[in-house]
């Protein structure tokens, strides 16, 4: 990793500045796709089973 940008005791400058959670975004993207798919399929079931009032 590069040089620390700030000298701040207690703040891990090196780590906060350079860690980009792209793997997290990737996992969450899959998660969101799954939410849309599964939630959406239940929504479709609702629409297919007829209105209730």
């Amino acid at each position: 990793m590069d040089e620390p940008v700030m000298e701040t005791p207690g703040v891990d400058a090196e780590e906060t500045e350079h860690f980009k959670p792209i793997g997290t975004l990737f996992v969450l993207a899959i998660f969101v796709a799954t939410i849309i798919l599964l939630w959406g399929s239940v929504y479709v079931i609702l629409l297919s089973r007829g209105v209730t009032s």
Binding site: V32, I35, W39, Y43, L46, L47, V51, S53
Partner: peptide
Amino acid sequence: VLLVVFLTAVTVAGFAMGFQV
């Protein structure tokens, strides 16, 4: 945004399309 979209979808289904509880 995702939650707002979902909530809108159920609200429309419930109050405009007649899928009521």
